[in-house]
Amino acid sequence: MSQPSGDSRQIPHSSKACRRLFGPVDSEQLRRDCDTLMASCLQEARQRWNFDFVTETPLEGNFVWERVRGLGVPKLYLTPGSCGGRDDTGGGRRPSPSAAVLQGTMAQEDHVDLSLSCTLVPRSSEQPEGSPETPGTSQSRKRRQTSMTDFYHSKRRLVFCKRKP
């Protein structure tokens, strides 16, 4: 009854749930598999969005990528601690693609453009003749905004959240 509530989620001493199930874990293999799978995720995303998420460059494909101005986030919110060697993620960690981009952009400007928007452009060559005409497909500038799910969105959300005081 009188147990302090803060302790309710401490791991009890000699908890039987603390156990390894399948013997020793090979960290090297974990690292290799992690790298392989991350690379395949990036590759999938690259094809899905015709965008290279490592170098953050648009590629040829169904989506047109353009930089959006005016969503810059003040530097203040992006640098925890000092501006120098950002090593907030703990030692030994390779810089993630987004961190690399953040650093790169920040070196040049005061504001960071994490804001690329992508739009799906119907390619006129692929438009089969006699297909049900949707209003506006004849206008080449008509675009449908798609939602960026995988990588970009989450990053943008992160930035927006940090904007709020």
Binding site: S15, C18, R19, R20, P24, S27, L30, C34, G92, R93
Partner: peptide, 10 residues
């Protein structure tokens, strides 16, 4: 809970 067979970083 994994008996420290993995690290938080992993």
């Amino acid at each position: 809970y994994t008996d420290n067979s993995i690290k938080p970083q992993e």
